[in-house]
Write a protein that binds this DNA or RNA. Sequence first.
DNA 1: AAGGGATGCAACCGCACAACA
DNA 2: ATGTTGTGCGGTTGCATCCCT
Length: 241
Amino acid sequence: MEKEEGTRKGPWTEQEDVQLVFYVNLFGDRRWDFIAKVSGLKRTGKSCRLRWVNYLHPGLKRGKMTPHEERLVLELHSKWGNRWSRIARKLPGRTDNEIKNYWRTHMRKKAQERKKTSIISPTSPSSSSSSNSNSPAVGFEPMIETEGRSFYDTGGVDIATGQNNSGVEIEGSAEVYSMDEIWKDIELSEESSNLRSQGVMSSSTPPIWDFWAADSLWSMDGQDAASKMDSFPFYYNHLTG
DNA sequence: AAGGGATGCAACCGCACAACA
DNA sequence: ATGTTGTGCGGTTGCATCCCT
């Protein structure tokens, strides 16, 4: 596979981000090795994918987990164990990585609390079987899940139609929580948390989004995309250099 | 104000699986 | 049927920031 010498590692620069977003918008988020090569980024396809999925994807929600989301994570984890990507599919805008991180923190806190309480009362009840294990509860009935495109899939631009085939429809509707509920909850808690923390979203939103928000290739026809490419320095730098 | 520990998050690694030749 | 390549996933690590003393 890719045994590229001189591949970059470590944190991504803003320029790399811009470059990656550009090429993903052009070619879709499937052919990562191809994108890695064509873009001139000295990154592996894997690294590109990860960066896109966990940070650059336009549908990502940033900021604190809402109480509703926290509840969902707990509930789904008790059913599915460490199936982070699966859990993430039920939480639009959240990545498996994010949820994984959240869970770790959550468990750490829980563990500490338990330590404290067990010091106070050493004979604590043992009813925690469903919440602290890596393995799903035995014999659970799996949620009805529409397998198919994951939330992350943007699929790129269909050059012929100029359409974005992201299909933002997120999973089926036969769920414990309706999407309306979740979105309402998200909006509400986001508004309040934004007020509290004076704009966590805006400060943590990747700056390159501004660049693309105005007229992203998603919503362009072929000509627009081409003209956008004209104005994009990296493209020709790489192809001609 | 400074130092040290705790926390959060981005990124890497290794493995598994699917698609394809 | 088998080997190769690309992608996805879960676990882990490293670093920056926060918080407490």
